[in-house]
Amino acid sequence: MLRSGLARSGIAVVGVVGVAVLIFFITRLLPGDPARVAAGQYATDAQVEQLRRQYGLDQPVLVQFGRYMVDFFRLDLGTSIRTGQPVTDELLTRLPATVELGLLALLIAVVLGVGLGVLAAVHRHRVVDKIIQLLVVFASAAAVFWIALLAIYLFVNEWGVFTSPIGRLPRGYAPPDPVTGFYVVDALLAGDLETAGAALRTLLFPAMLLGLHASPSIVKIVRSSTIRALESDYARTSRSFGYPPGSILFHDGLRNALLPVITNIGLVAGFVLAGGNVLIEQLYAWPGIGQYAYDSLQENDLFALRGYVILIGVTYILLNIVLELAYRRADPRVAVAEGR
């Protein structure tokens, strides 16, 4: 157990270093010129040259790489060209907003994905299943920014269900005292139910879209693993005893079907945190790291964008290690196979 733990953290370290190296390679060795990009289209050569010196881009690549890696291990992701602030600090201040949105979106995606997946499996090869599969195709073939835009148009402008998306709270509310950084939790801690409600309503809208966007892969995996479990030998044994369908669905179907979901959640979480997030946060003026990435992109701030991408990659690797441990706990077969 200890040895496999060490091996696992070894893989994690290699992965994290790999992420840093890959991103350096992309941002520095591809034939782009970060100084030229940062200076903008209309900068003079002298301005570009000045930026190049300022950020050490005139040094040999190896020296730059060495500095970059040393900084990386000191958790220093460089300085934003746009704001002049350390990228690490800026990302960390914005992280709670993204995580709050991401967690609720993940919850929605899992509930939706497991619900629809099980429904499709129970009615497999019949009309309900076909409808769910078609929904899955359309949910995964629709551009998330397009759906979000239409949703804002319908829910805010036409029907007035949600207030217009201008950040984490509607106009007229003050943010609660920061404890966890999650507005809903912080407002509850402060005993301010009204703010908590307003924050939750504001949060719900983008979280629903992000959750919907992330759910198709969960539906697919839950459907196929539930079908496999329901058609398994052990489900047949249960039927031979005449167990009620609910018991078979729960004990034989779900229990065994949800295991693969745990590993899949890693992918979905990475997706929720990053994939659709840049687009959703920008459209909803959500002050998280996705919006930071968008702003950096618009202002040609490659260093800030690079910091964002590194954060995403590292988070994803660490998340997967945690999930693998969780899987080990959940599936007795894996635990035994390795726990000698």
């Binding site: 890959l22 991103i23 992309i26 990009v37 490659l302 991408v309 994803y316």
Partner: peptide, 21 residues
Amino acid sequence: TDVFLAFPAVVLALIITASLG
């Protein structure tokens, strides 16, 4: 490939495009 797979494709594509121009 492991390292590449640590990023959602759209994020990877974003940083590559941003770097290239």
